[in-house]
Design a protein around this nucleic acid. Structure first.
Lengths: 227, 227, 227, 227
DNA sequence: GATGAATGAGTATTCATTCAT
DNA sequence: TATGAATGAATACTCATTCAT
């Protein structure tokens, strides 16, 4: 019943997506936040269908009624959650790109940050990655927009690099999708592995492959940009 | 009611009647085959969790009892199905590689055939691609071996190409995984698109990207190898 | 926030703002009135059980708390509502009887007015007619008094007619009940019909039957009394 | 778990409506029969909405799964039940009319039998009468056909009587509806009364009123036809 | 080999009611 | 007076699995 400081730190960042970019004092997390947080956990290790409401409600220390007061249905709650999580991830990536102006370094940084962030927050990764496909065509289509955000972000950077002449002309839509798929698979392996190698050891190889795939010599980047 | 020996030979390995386009005498498919065939359809439409036994049984014109005579559980049936389907796909790819000895052409052919085959058999693709992830950690791990087969196949070809000096040395395990992920994503997009472009139009771009990612100039292949 | 005395006078008896078509100064209806008004609509559409508080509260632009300030429970609110509505209807009928002294014309007028009023106010009719039966024995008994009011009114007129010698002696209690049932059924048909005939076209036939049932020749009434 | 003879007698008559007119040996009642029988009880004293499945299932000594094996939904089950019950009642009435050829006696017999049968089987009456209205417009319309059967039966007899010249020409559709409503109300009163008078004492009065309403002198029937 | 009736734990969702503010 | 977040028991329905025939 009492909330410890660690919780507050997590929840402070877990306010509803809409209000999450204002600076704020750390209050007791609302029921809505607790539900979304609990859902992240349960979804992470059970998947969409098996993530039953009872588990989420018990974990969030709320009630059935409270859940349905805040969300109209399980589906909409998950959609909201996935939206919030991907929003946060996209913001993280954007932040890591802010200070970098060189196009090649930007595309490298995007992929690096994505892997890095996911590897640090396994639950987030599992929720976002494991539940966007495989729920039947109808649900899969509903989850598509989330995938699109990441693809669009990558494509934007590729387009800039092409415009800057740093990358030879190519179908950036296709390339972005393939990058996304490749990164997804790498993370999947890493998450499901019993004793995964440290992500830092994997990142350089991934980056090299991705850069080469769009006709860039990985050596051209010079020193490693910090993730 | 009696079992023809020919049946056992032809369908004993679990081939389905409808999707077998090789020449072969057509015997009445056994209940087991009808079940697997029906399951492919239902899984394709609804995903793993929503694919209920009643639908599969109705479609296969068998009965509950018959199902549980042939399979110990739904999970084991799906595992068997996915195994059979991927086995068939791997064989197709192997066939398309048989006549080709040049390492570079072999890796290109592998990716081409994979895309081509899936695009021609949407149900197969949807079953194999959409349902291998997102069912919760436990199920996901069980499905991993299926993914591994394709990855291993690609890796083997990459290893050969490296050994032959056609591809510069690289982490082929990682590369194979990334290829698989990229191909998966391309297919996903294609399958969920409302009006997808013809797959033939997509293949060359994909091939170029993949080859370049392992340091090969796509132009080095010369003429297009038939899929 | 302050309560105007005029409000209490006008709306104190629970008149709803929308359905009051008599001339009267229009003050802001109190929350209680808005709730009863909203309840009439929702009950008319969905019946007793399906008429949920959320809908009523949303429609009345109040709040859960406000509802429970004004009414101790849903059941009591509905009872109050039905009471109020039937009170109003009985008053209407009484009014239409006031100017008429001839016993036969009075019983005819009662039935006419009932049909006429309900047909003009479908929501009122649906609420009062559709929801007084079918809610389980317990609820049905609670709603009985409402039915009784109409039966009693009819019976009183029949008794007068008998006393005046205009109608031969008979079991007026039974007759009144049967009249009520017959009128109820006619309205039910009329309300559920997709394209109902104008009520005015139905009324004469109904009146004839009812009068004949108590041994009166409909022709004895002469000219039509206005409803 | 053991079934007593009384049960068998009841169930023997309670076979699914479609097969109920074949002569048959009395077997153990099927689950379907037990469910319908239990539903009759529960519906009788709780009404449609409050008749919860758990109660019906417990009373029928079956299971959730069994219920949904036999019926696709609660609504459809109730519709089937009401159909079966009204079918049985209509047959009873038809039987009581068979031996009677005189038109006036037939219309009297129809009304008498209806009251008589319902009064002997309170549960049947309550189920059929209490649940046909008051469930919201949608459900009410679905139940309409059941009401229509009785109305049609009455109308048919009235039409015959008119054709035979025993009853003066009149709107028999309207008359039949009004008869139905009047009978419904009489039964309702009788069923909800704490100490109802014997139905036999009520029937003559009802019959007189109904006959007079269509212009027939009740005395014209002579001696009482046995119900 | 095959059938299909039966099981029952599990699932998302509803809704009248309460209560701190 | 009024608000609306919170509660939790109740409800209809699902579905993999069993088993007597």
């Amino acid at each position: 019943m009492t909330i410890d400081v660690a919780d507050l730190l997590v929840y402070g960042d877990g306010q509803t997506s809409r209000s999450s970019c204002t600076m704020r004092v750390r209050f007791k997390p609302t029921a809505r936040d607790r539900i979304l947080d609990a859902a992240t956990s349960v979804l992470a290790d059970r998947g969409y269908q098996s993530a039953n409401l009872d588990a989420i409600i018990a974990l969030s220390r709320t009630s059935k009624g409270s859940f349905y007061f805040h969300f109209p249905s399980k589906e909409r709650m998950v959609l909201a959650l996935v939206d919030q999580l991907s929003e946060r991830l996209v913001q993280k990536i954007e932040q890591s790109l802010e200070k970098e102006t060189r196009p090649l370094h930007r595309i490298a940084a995007a992929s690096d940050t994505l892997l890095h962030t996911f590897s640090r927050q396994r639950r987030l990764a599992q929720t976002l990655l494991f539940n966007l496909v495989g729920q039947g065509k109808t649900m899969d289509k509903k989850f598509m927009p989330v995938r699109d955000r990441f693809a669009t972000l990558i494509q934007r950077e590729l387009d800039r690099a092409v415009a800057a002449g740093a990358v030879p002309p190519l179908d950036t839509t296709l390339a972005a999708r393939m990058w996304l798929g490749a990164l997804h698979e790498v993370l999947l392996q890493w998450l499901l592995a019993d004793r995964p190698r440290p992500m830092a050891a994997i990142i350089p190889g991934v980056r090299s492959l991705l850069l080469r795939s769009v006709g860039v010599d990985p050596a051209a980047l010079g020193v490693e940009p910090a993730p």
